[in-house]
Design a protein around this nucleic acid. Structure first.
Lengths: 327, 327
DNA sequence: TTGAAAGCGGTACCAC
DNA sequence: GTGGTACCGCTTTCAA
């Protein structure tokens, strides 16, 4: 069995209190005693039990993060930014993916029991569940989702990015556009749609094309629907994957792009560059990093009132939206 | 403060032992007592402390996973496969990225204190450190890396994939090829290089082009070196990102591809499809899932001897390696 | 400067 | 069936 603090105490001929002091170099300990303890600890290869410590300190020194998936680059980047800051702050990171998980809510509850606070990404958990967490005293930061019941939040300026993108399209004489994506899947997507609506003049026409999920396959499928009827001037997709799926199918169908139809995505993932896809970049890693900092403030108690951060977005114009719409 | 088991016991007029029994429905408890306890627990909104339980049971019910990064799709997929299985087995997942972390080894040690076992991906931690973990009784599974000191391992058949790819290139009359990547960065990469060497006939020429990291930027940079000197028949890259970086730069330089030079990558990430990149697919998610299962066997004690799994790879031919080399 | 002892919140053995 | 109680491994008063 592994050595405990009592073994070290016995070996060094001191009390466990003294061993604890030495290991946490808190109170002053006589140097000779200190050395004896360190020698004993070294001799026994003593490593303090994280569990014992956590229970006594009543803190986990760990944060959680809940995300729907890690497939696309988006969530992976957010998680990375989060982990990086959390590690700096001396906290472990627990992850929980809700993909294909029917018991997501109970899983989140269980996770909340194992950490000092957690970040919830997007629409992974119902509002009511988040509120329940907060009421029970959990520290919660929402990312890519409007704040709920006093929780902190971090979001990208979706509306602003959407407006910039829309204005760019308007400059190209786009008048009929289709938004591809389901605003109900994610608050972020809903915001993007709203931004477009805000920037659109009365003489423009915006249709909404619902899709079941935001992946390439769905994008390709969407194109199929339009091959038998009129194409709009432009498709604006809820994310890049969707747009990339459309690109593939459009070019396979021989549609002139960006001449006949323009396509834009969202996120600026790596593949977007290769496809020459116009998109709106959002600071994915920074979203995670900011969430980690806010969470730390909540946990350490240095701030008690909720705060809501907005991070910038940036329009990235590439070849899928070049040239004016043919008259 | 949150209710503890003692509060519930008092409220229900029973001992804590009985409360514990009811909550874990272990030993038989009289139904009326049981109901009283459940009512009290419900009334007090009692949720058992994970820490208390873990300390008493002397298990964390959590697994760790150490990876270098999460930027590319590769590690993200592995982590996802891992998390998915771990969750099914009722274990939480702790993550640790070693990217830009000078104290990686101590961070891994700390993580090992917080979980029942962990998975180490690629060259994130020195062999000696892994051995130390194993010696101290930690359950360790290595992924994309040769086993160390009695740890389990899960790997893709890199050699086999590399041979298949090489034979494909040979069929196209490729004779002079350059392997782009640093075999010392990862055992996986070293295996791929070895596979190529094995499949190459004596009259073929294989050069090794070292790069500092396996990202697109490096790929683009590599191309720069060849614009002033002779191009090989084909570039085989250590991963897709590298290959994609090369593709962009090559086409910018107006090099005929795949006529003048062929390019192949590794992993089959999403962007590879859009770029029409020939590559070798490996079952990323399955690597993680398998690791989680092996780890569970280790932790549950259902297996004590180390085991080593090899997962299949698959050659995916696309447009970057079409047509024979011009004579 | 150091030690004894009371927690932290559970589990589980041993009596009754 | 239940209750008393001894842990699990550490931190932290309170005294000495």
């Amino acid at each position: 069995m592994r050595a405990t603090i009592r073994d070290v105490a016995r070996e060094a001929g001191v009390s466990i209190a003294t061993v604890s002091r030495v290991l946490r170099d808190s109170t002053a300990v006589r140097p000779t005693t200190r050395d004896r303890v360190l020698a004993a600890a070294d001799e026994l290869e003593f490593v303090p039990s994280a569990l014992g410590r956590q229970l006594a300190e009543r803190r986990h020194a760990a944060n959680g993060i809940v995300f729907p998936d890690l497939s696309g680059p988006y969530y992976a980047e957010v998680v990375l930014g989060y982990e990086s800051v959390a590690a700096e702050l001396g906290r472990s990171v627990l992850i929980l993916s809700t993909r294909d998980r029917p018991d997501a809510e109970s899983a989140v509850q269980a996770m909340a029991e194992r950490c000092d606070g957690l970040v919830v990404l997007g629409r992974t958990v119902p509002d009511a569940a988040v509120e329940r967490l907060v009421v029970r005293g959990a520290h919660v930061v929402m990312v890519a989702r409007p704040p709920v019941g006093g929780a902190d939040s971090v979001n990208a300026r979706n509306r602003q990015g959407a407006r910039a993108l829309t204005e760019h399209l308007l400059d190209l004489d786009v008048r009929r556009l289709v938004f591809v994506g389901d605003p109900s899947t994610s608050p972020d997507v809903a915001e993007r749609l709203r931004g477009i609506q805000e920037a659109l003049p009365a003489d423009a026409d915006l249709q909404l094309h619902h899709v079941d999920s935001l992946d390439e396959e769905c994008g390709a499928h969407v194109v199929g629907d339009y091959l038998t009827r009129a194409l709009p001037d432009a498709f604006v997709c809820a994310n890049d994957e969707l747009a990339l799926g459309m690109l593939g199918r459009l070019s396979a169908a021989g549609v002139d792009l960006p001449g006949r139809v323009k396509v834009a995505g969202w996120d600026d993932v790596m593949a977007a560059r290769y496809a020459g896809l116009t998109t709106v970049r959002q600071p994915m890693r920074e979203l995670g990093a900011t969430a980690a900092r806010l969470l730390d403030e909540l946990i350490s108690g240095s701030r008690s009132h909720p705060t809501h951060e907005l991070l910038p977005t940036q329009l990235v114009v590439r070849s899928t939206t070049l040239g004016k719409v043919a008259p």
